[in-house]
């Protein structure tokens, strides 16, 4: 396998409300900055992640291409998934390609719709979508299953939120949210603060191979393992209290021994489930950026986890870090990317 590293990461100052910028306008400064930072104007490959239903219209990725400067024509692809999967596609391309660099980006404006409701059309169209079951309700089923099995309490969920929001207030790019106070349940056992905030934002990452990575970055964040796994869709056929697909992906990517983990936790209880699945003990710092509970620009959120984990390698605060992304109802699909300051892990 070729040595591939995250050499640059740029994100917007995420906002909790629509500031009047289109998706393309949100993205363009991020692309401009990452080009300036790396000094690269033409990448070997470009890949993005976005979602038409989030944008409310088909082909959201076509307009976004305007921000990239795709002329002369570029080698490019797109996944209708979180941009973490776009990063995976780019990593695969770098493994066999004749190319040394790749640009990956994702963007989302959750302020335009109600994501919990939009998520309903992403479920089984025969048994789930017709029920009108929303993302928060599905997540709450999983929260209940986990609390009942593990003995964790709602106080433990609140502690996750309090820690995440405190970290988020130290992150200039995240939303700055107050300490959680007990309001009513949104969908019991989850309260409003247990759910990631509505966020608009965009992010980009540059990957580079071997010596090119060393030229571009003083301390490249080498990808020593990356893997993603799915599990069956219907909630009634799984053990919701655990995440088997996260466990598998973590095992294959080599999650053991990381110092920092950035987890795609759109709901507080997911941190408990993922810590267990990935074998992250008390000594592992989780979501020092504040995580999705402090900023959740959907379709970029997973990519930002990898970017934030890489940034801990870039700045020397961690030797090994992990970025995680999730997709589908109740953590159905999980991606784990393990990064290191050394190519041999």
């Amino acid at each position: 396998m070729r040595d591939i590293a995250v050499v640059a990461f740029v994100q917007t100052h995420h906002t909790g409300e629509d500031t009047g910028l289109s998706e393309t306008e949100l993205l363009a400064p991020v692309i401009t900055e990452i080009k300036q930072r790396t000094g690269i104007t033409r990448f070997g490959f470009t890949c993005s992640g976005s979602n038409d239903y989030l944008a409310g219209a088909p082909f959201s990725f076509v307009a976004a291409l305007d921000a990239v400067g795709a002329w002369p024509p570029i080698s490019e692809s797109h996944v209708e998934m979180d941009a973490a999967w776009a990063l995976y596609e780019a990593w695969v391309k770098l493994q066999h390609g004749e190319i040394d660099t790749a640009l990956v980006y994702g963007f989302g404006k959750a302020s335009q719709g109600d994501w919990a409701e939009i998520a309903t059309v992403g479920y089984d169209p025969y048994y789930l979508t017709p029920l009108g079951v929303d993302a928060d309700s599905m997540a709450a089923l999983q929260a209940r299953a986990h609390l009942e099995r593990s003995g964790a309490k709602e106080d433990d969920l609140r502690a996750v939120v309090a820690r995440s929001r405190a970290a988020g207030r130290d992150n200039p790019f995240a939303l700055h949210l107050p300490d959680p106070e007990d309001g009513d349940h949104t969908v019991a056992p989850l309260r409003a603060h247990d759910v990631a905030p509505v966020t608009d934002g965009a992010a980009a990452v540059v990957l580079a191979a071997g010596d090119r990575a060393r030229e571009l970055c003083e301390r490249p964040a080498w990808i020593t393992g990356i893997d993603h796994r799915a599990e069956p869709h219907l909630p009634g056929v799984r053990d919701l209290s655990r995440s088997e697909s996260a466990r598998l992906a973590g095992e294959r990517a080599g999650a053991a021994g990381v110092q920092v983990a950035e987890l795609h936790t759109r709901y507080s209880h997911e941190e408990l489930i993922l810590r267990e699945a990935l074998g992250l003990g008390e000594e592992v710092t989780v979501n020092p950026s504040g995580g999705p509970l402090s900023a959740d620009p959907i379709m970029a959120t997973g990519l930002i986890r990898i970017g934030e984990a890489a940034a801990r390698i870039h700045d020397g605060t961690a030797g090994r870090a992990l970025g995680h992304a999730a997709s589908g109802p109740c953590l159905q699909q999980n991606l784990v990317c393990v990064l290191s300051g050394a190519t041999n892990g």
Binding site: D18, L21, T24, G113
Partner: peptide, 9 residues
């Protein structure tokens, strides 16, 4: 699905 779209600057 209901959206509140804005045009961009």
């Amino acid at each position: 699905l209901e959206y509140r779209l804005r045009s961009g600057r």
